[in-house]
């Protein structure tokens, strides 16, 4: 199965969730700033990457783990993907879309916007990293639920 985590920019919450899914981050303790900044693609994607479904890795069960940025349009992404799957006869159990909506806090929004949109790496990156650490529990809970349903 292909599991696709999606969020606004495809560079913070979805990347963190994909990294958790693949065991790149500790699940029992809260990660440190350095742990998050060491994740590939974390706070590194721009506007022109939105919509590019990118492979993060393959989990222990052989599932391909992807992430994508879809701006503020989760419905648009879902309509395209489910519509194409229907027309191209792709079975629904071959992929799963996981929205990160509701797992993002104000620090992540503000820091992500500063860092990615305006390129204010400082103070944007420390702010979004702090926000991700604060949201880590809800992100890891979502990932656990996704893994449990496989």
């Amino acid at each position: 199965m292909k599991i696709i985590y999606h969020c606004f920019g495809g560079t913070h919450s979805s990347v963190t969730a994909a990294a958790c899914h693949l065991g790149m981050l500790p699940t029992s303790i809260t990660p440190k700033n350095e742990d998050l900044l060491a994740i590939p693609f974390f706070d590194a994607r721009d506007n022109h990457d939105h919509g590019n479904i990118t492979l993060m890795g393959i989990d222990d069960n052989g599932n391909d783990i992807y992430f994508v940025g879809r701006r503020s349009c989760p419905q648009l992404l879902e309509n395209i993907i489910y519509g194409l799957a229907r027309e191209f006869d792709i079975p629904p159990h071959h992929f799963k879309l996981v929205s990160m909506e509701g797992k993002i806090n104000f620090s992540m929004r503000l820091g992500g916007f500063m860092s990615r949109r305006f390129k204010w790496i400082y103070p944007g990156r420390p702010l979004v990293t702090r926000g991700t650490i604060n949201a880590f529990t809800s992100i890891i809970n979502l990932v656990r639920r996704v893994k449990a349903r496989e």
Partner: peptide
């Protein structure tokens, strides 16, 4: 069709069909 985000729509279609 949609209102705006044409660049993203193109990338979603291409990348989804490529990974499938």
């Amino acid at each position: 069709w949609a209102r705006g985000n044409g660049d993203m729509i193109g990338r979603v279609i291409k990348s989804f069909l490529a990974l499938m």
